[in-house]
Structures are given as C-alpha cells and as structure tokens.
Design a binder for these strands. Structure first.
Lengths: 236, 236
DNA sequence: ACGCGCCAAATCGTACATTGTTTGAGGAAA
DNA sequence: TTTCCTCAAACAATGTACGATTTGGCGCGT
C-alpha cells in the first residue's frame, strides 16, 4: 500500500463481489468499459452476434452480460429489438452527481467520527501525491482522487450506499477524463482537500460533511459545464 | 384516477421501462416477487433448471432473468456455483432506508416548490382514503401510502433518484407487509402525513423536507424493530 | 407518390455439450 | 465401531449451436 505508482481504479474492498460467469465476466467488463469510456456511442445498437464475435465467445455470455448491464442501468432493452447503449448525457450526469451530493456527506460524517491516525496519515499521503502530481498527469490525478475518497468511504457500514457511490464515481470519472481541469477547479480541489483533512483531524463532522457536499457539487457542475461547452461547440 | 379501489403497486409513470424479453419478463417478475415477498428464503440456491421447469420455459430466459436480478442486487452469483437469493435482512433494510432518509427529503423539497393545486388535492384525497381505511386493511394502507408518496416524487426531474426511491420502496413495502403496525406508528404516520400536507400548502420546503426525513427514519426503525423482535422470538 | 409484400437480419427460445462442483458410498486407519 | 479419506457418479453451471419468430427496409406494382 505504500507504493506510489500502483493506483488502479479498483472497487474498494468488500464492494462488487462480482463473481460473474468466468467468460461472461470479461465480456461484461469490456462492454461496460466501452460504454462508460464512450467508445460505444450513445443509443448505439448492441447486436449480440457482433459482440459475441468481437469478444470471441458465443452469444449466451453476451446476452447475460447485457442483462446484467440492464440491471445496472447502462443498457436499455426493447422487446424483440435488443439492446441499446444508455446515453450518458448531461441529464444522466446531473442525476448521479446530485445523488452524490446527498449521500457523500453522510458517508463523510461517519468517517470523521471513525477515522484512525492511520486513516489520516493515508489521506495526507495521498493528498501529498496529488499535490506532487499537480494535474500534470490527469489520469493519475483521477486515480489518486478516487483513492482519496475511497479511504473515507470503503469501511462504511452501509455497503449499499458505498456501492452506490462507487458505481456513480466510476461513471463520473470516465466522463471527466475526456475533459481538462480548469484552473479554478484545480485550485478548488486542492483547497477543499486540505480543508477536508483539517476537519477530519479536528473531528468536525458537520463541517466536513458540508464541505464534501460543496466539493461534490463543484465537481459535478464542472463536468456539466464542460459537457455543455462541448455540445455547444459541436452544434455551432 | 378518481377511482378509490384501483390502487395497485405500479411504478410511477416514466419509471421502469422494463421491456424485457417477453418470456424473460414474466420469469424475472415472478422470481423477483418471490424474493421480495420472502417466498424464496434467504440464501436459497436458485437452480436454473428448477426455475425453468417451474415456470414452464427453458433455461435461457431464467438465466437472463437472474443476471438482471443480479444487476439490481437481489441475487448473488458465485462463479461455477450459480445464484443465491440475497438475504433481505436487517442490514439490508437498514442500508436502504438510510439512503431513503438522505434522498427523500431532497425529492420532497423540490415537490413543495412545484406543487400545484391539483397535486395538493390529490394528496388530500389519498390521505382521506388512508384515514378512512385506518389500517383496517393493511395491504390497502400500504398501497395508499405508496400512492401518497408517489404523487410527490413521480414528476421529479431526477429520474435516477426517483427510480432508486421506487426500488427501495418496493423492498420495504414487501418486508413491512409481514408485520403489523404498532399503535404508536399508526399515530405517527397519520400525524406526519397531515403535517406534511400542511407544509406543502404553506410552501415550507425546509420543514417538509425535515419532516419527511423523520417520517422515513421512523418507518425504517419501525420495520427494523419488528425484524429484531421476530428474530429474537425465533431464536428464543 | 403510396401502399403491399417479400427478404435480410437479429432477437428469443430450445436443445445439447462441456466443465466444474457436490455428494455419498466404500474402505482404510485409529 | 467410529472417523476420515478417496474417488466416482450425479448434478448443475456455463458455453455452443440451431431453429423459430419478429422486425424493419427495400423494391415492386399500382
């Protein structure tokens, strides 16, 4: 855990006990990635035989993967007409970050009251790496930022809430990867993270929760602005 | 809509555009019902061939239904060992009602600011039916109560949040159907509903939101107490 | 220009093969 | 006699193949 270079976007411990059908698992993950990363366009048809060929399996694993994705809300089915990619548009993003604004403060509040010295040290270590990186490698920043918040939420007793957070987080991370951080946003992130650590140290649960609400709100708005800008550019 | 007897537990408009594979849809719904209603015991193995036989189809529809349920969190898979019913235990219930406490106030706040005269009339009409029924038919009460809150949430712009609420609601409703309402809880429900209507009429968004938080909290605790009592009785 | 019917394509259900897991009977050791 | 191990047969999950049914479009005829 002391390594500085191995931050991968992994679900927090205890989350996502996938356990899919071996073959189906990879198909599921690949399609899911393709949707989240935007390699599969919005509303694109997901033809079972194509996907099966592309991933070198037969149709059944693909069909099951698609149903799984349907249950998770990434794919939309119409009877006798198959599956389409659920568009990850502004509305979608707004919906999930708004839910984050409601849930993350509660998770934070709990963390503040349960944080150990080691937790705080870990937060500071990650924050150190974030500052060291200073948005030079945006992908790395994204990973580190996820790690930062994961430290706070991964041990929460409400596994549902934590899982929900993680699921939403992945989507937002993928979307935001397509954009650059504005200077204002960079400054805000740094400031809020430092302030958050201070609140955790001081045990100010309420202040920390309120700060996180603002933090998530800001992050969401930032992404939405970028999406709007791009849409406007595309339209104009 | 003016009928007094046709309240069925249907998803609010716009929610759940299922569109499952014709055959798979019914299998999905049936298994899902069996889980939520407790006809399938916690952790019970879900053997594909059995389910297929029981529902008069072949295995593929069942497999897809199970994956769908997995995506929704009602079923747990272990590789090469198939599916099991996700136990709807105290932890599960606590997790989802806590999320409700976080989300519903926000939905309510929005409703208070958007409520029309017709909305309020509808709320009062349903509340009238609730009082008329006065827990004589608990099933009917459950339906009416759901209808009451659906009026408030069904038009919310955040479809994700509304859908999440609905999904959680269904689980809680099914669980609570196994218990009776205590007198204290009955009184609280009536009081809070009336108070809520008053707040909506007055446009007191904050007060309404806070009240709903208490309302959901109280409902959740009530269910948990019943579950605890039953477990204790079973153990003793 | 507007419908009508046929055809290509894809979904959906069924049947089957393969692979991994569970179970229980038999036997050896204590 | 009891306990534990072995191993094989039954069982069930997972992957493959195929046929039926639906859908959407293209072109033909009017």
């Amino acid at each position: 855990m002391a390594e500085t270079s191995d931050f991968k976007a992994k679900p927090p411990v205890g989350i996502d006990p996938i356990g899919a059908s071996s073959e189906g698992a990879s198909v599921y993950e690949l399609i899911r990635e393709d949707i989240i990363e935007g390699r599969l366009a919005a509303n694109e048809r997901l033809v079972v035989t194509d996907l099966a060929r592309r991933h070198g399996t037969s149709t059944n694993p693909v069909r099951e993967a698609l149903q799984l994705l349907r249950g998770e809300g990434f794919v939309i089915f119409t009877p006798n007409r198959g599956a389409r990619v659920r568009p990850i548009d502004q509305e979608f993003v707004r919906d999930i970050y708004e839910i984050g604004v409601l849930i993350e403060p509660a998770l934070t509040r709990w963390f503040v009251n349960m944080a150990t010295v080691e937790d705080i040290a870990e937060l500071e270590r990650i924050q150190g790496l974030i500052e060291e990186n200073d948005f030079a490698d945006t992908f790395r920043h994204s990973e580190l930022d996820t790690a930062f918040h994961t430290v706070m939420y991964q041990r929460h007793y409400n596994r549902h809430a934590a899982e929900l957070w993680w699921k939403h987080r992945e989507v937002l991370r993928a979307v935001s990867r397509r954009f650059n951080f504005t200077l204002a946003r960079r400054a805000a992130i740094m400031r809020e993270h430092r302030e958050l650590i201070a609140h955790v140290k001081a045990g100010n649960a309420d202040e920390a929760a309120e700060l996180v609400a603002r933090h998530v709100e800001g992050s969401g708005r930032h992404i939405l602005e970028h999406m709007r800008a791009r849409n406007a550019a595309r339209a104009g």
